[in-house]
Design a protein around this nucleic acid. Sequence first.
DNA 1: TTAGTTATTGTATAAATAACAATATTTATT
DNA 2: AATAAATATTGTTATTTATACAATAACTAA
Lengths: 231, 231
Amino acid sequence: MYKIAFNDFFTYSFSLDSVIFGFRNGEINVLLIKRALEPFKNMWAIPGDLVYPDEDLSIAAERILFELTKLNNVELHQAQTFGHPKRHPQGRVITSAYFALVRIEEFHVEASSWAEEVKWVPFHEIPELAFDHNLILNSTFELLKKKLTYEPICFDLLPKRFTLNEMQQLYEYAFGVEMDKANFRKKIKPIPLISHDEKQINVKHRPAKLFSFNSESYEKLTSTESYQFKM
Amino acid sequence: MYKIAFNDFFTYSFSLDSVIFGFRNGEINVLLIKRALEPFKNMWAIPGDLVYPDEDLSIAAERILFELTKLNNVELHQAQTFGHPKRHPQGRVITSAYFALVRIEEFHVEASSWAEEVKWVPFHEIPELAFDHNLILNSTFELLKKKLTYEPICFDLLPKRFTLNEMQQLYEYAFGVEMDKANFRKKIKPIPLISHDEKQINVKHRPAKLFSFNSESYEKLTSTESYQFKM
DNA sequence: TTAGTTATTGTATAAATAACAATATTTATT
DNA sequence: AATAAATATTGTTATTTATACAATAACTAA
């Protein structure tokens, strides 16, 4: 049993890596950056960097994401922490994954700092990434799938006003299954949606009605009744 | 925007704290230790300590748990990570919570190293703990509750052979609700259980039949069919 | 006007949920 | 041995939810 003085432990670094999910053309996308720095220079990665010694984690996650991609005002949630001693070639860097769900069309992204490029990539077309980022991404996607079943987070990915078919496509893409249209609509009956008088435009078939999530009504339901979102 | 050299970031420390859950007398218990060291000397805490610079996280979690409580061979799972800059009075220490589910009666626990005492405490009777351990414990209990609904982990807490009533009590304690006996039995029908010819002994009423979880059958179900554990 | 395409609603059946009643098996007591 | 007390176990019924598939409606493009 070896003994180590307290200060010997202060030889770590700590980073945060953010998985930003978006939804476009029926596909769940992930925001990637191209690294302009060693290690893994020119490889794609999820945006992440080291935390300042006095910085709270969620603050740091927002700062880092903004520095690399100019993405701002997104709600970041913590996922898993990865700490294999050799995961970073330059030293012991433990990292926590964060994730956010955004409406792609509402946000501007732009490569900045040491990010040479940024782009949205459909989850099922993700290339080999720097560090253990494929591992991080896969584990975070699993978390997303779980949350999709018991929290109304699909509405953070969908446009403010969406068609029921878009909502169905999101679930179909996430879980890799096909669903029956009629039954899907029955299943989501308990979810408080606002049905608008508006319809799709510029589609070359019968346009679908637009809906939006009624978050006020959802808050009431969850606080008063024993309502539980379920998909 | 201030600039920091890479090495300035290596001023962290990293710890792991383990929440060990057990089930006894109809109550979910948590294993606590009494700290023999500053800071928070003499306060109760969940077992945790610093990670060695070259140590993988899950290995470290096992080592630390054993050093403090002599608890061995338990399956630890990662929960949330806590990193508030002021959470540790002696420096920047980020910590990841781990948790395990054990059968109290099968394991020997014993205070060791800088743990002065160890004891099992029912979750609803937890005192004020050192550091942010109440926060960690509560968030990990929430995670446990979620997992209880979609994974057959209650069987890691229950005795190898248990009565259906004990199983029901576990869920009732976790979720703070009363359930109907008859309906509970119908609800768990899809779960593969082995019904034994054995009964409770030393009870002063009609003894209940003993069951055990059929994990082989469960593995088959999850791999072949589209079976999903659900409670 | 009509074919093509997708949106939306309906119907019938099976399965799961929930509330409550009834019966069975054991221990403790007379 | 008979009976009360306590808990285990199974049944019954009505209601809701899930599943498969059919039918109808609304729009575009030709």
